[in-house]
Computed example of a mutant assay.
Amino acid sequence: MNRPSDPSPPPLNSHELPPPTADGVDIGNPEVGNPYSRKNVPTSGTSATQEAFKRLYIILIVIGLSIGVVAAIGVVNLLNRWGLTQPPQSVEETNR
Rank of each mutant, 00 (worst) to 15 (best):
M1G: 12
N2V: 14
N2S: 11
N2T: 14
P4I: 00
P4E: 00
P4Y: 01
S5T: 10
D6I: 09
P7L: 01
P7N: 02
P7C: 06
P9K: 06
P10S: 13
P11R: 07
P11T: 03
L12R: 14
N13T: 09
N13S: 06
N13Q: 14
S14G: 07
S14T: 05
H15G: 01
E16I: 00
L17F: 03
L17D: 06
P18L: 00
P18I: 04
P19H: 12
P19L: 15
P20G: 05
P20D: 08
T21E: 02
A22G: 00
D23S: 12
G24Q: 02
I27Y: 00
I27N: 04
I27K: 05
I27S: 02
G28H: 02
P30N: 08
E31Y: 05
V32I: 14
G33Y: 07
G33K: 14
G33T: 02
G33D: 03
N34D: 15
P35Q: 06
Y36D: 15
Y36M: 13
R38P: 15
R38E: 13
K39N: 13
K39S: 09
N40T: 07
V41I: 15
V41Q: 07
V41A: 04
V41T: 12
P42E: 01
T43D: 13
T43S: 15
T46K: 05
S47G: 02
T49S: 10
Q50L: 13
E51Y: 05
E51A: 10
E51R: 03
F53R: 12
F53I: 11
F53N: 14
F53T: 10
K54N: 02
K54S: 12
K54A: 08
K54Q: 13
R55A: 15
R55N: 14
L56K: 11
L56S: 13
I58F: 08
I58L: 09
I58M: 04
I59A: 14
L60F: 15
L60S: 05
V62K: 04
V62I: 11
I63C: 01
G64C: 01
L65I: 11
S66A: 13
S66C: 11
I67R: 03
I67Y: 06
I67E: 05
G68I: 09
G68C: 14
V69W: 13
V70I: 15
V70T: 15
A71C: 11
A72H: 05
A72Q: 01
A72K: 01
A72Y: 10
I73N: 05
G74Q: 08
V75Y: 03
V75W: 06
V75P: 00
N77G: 07
L78C: 08
L79V: 05
N80G: 11
G83M: 09
L84H: 04
T85S: 10
Q86E: 11
P88D: 05
P88G: 02
Q89S: 13
S90W: 11
S90N: 10
S90V: 13
V91F: 12
V91P: 06
V91I: 15
E92T: 01
E92I: 06
N95F: 11
N95G: 01
N95Y: 11
R96A: 09
R96I: 12
R96Y: 12
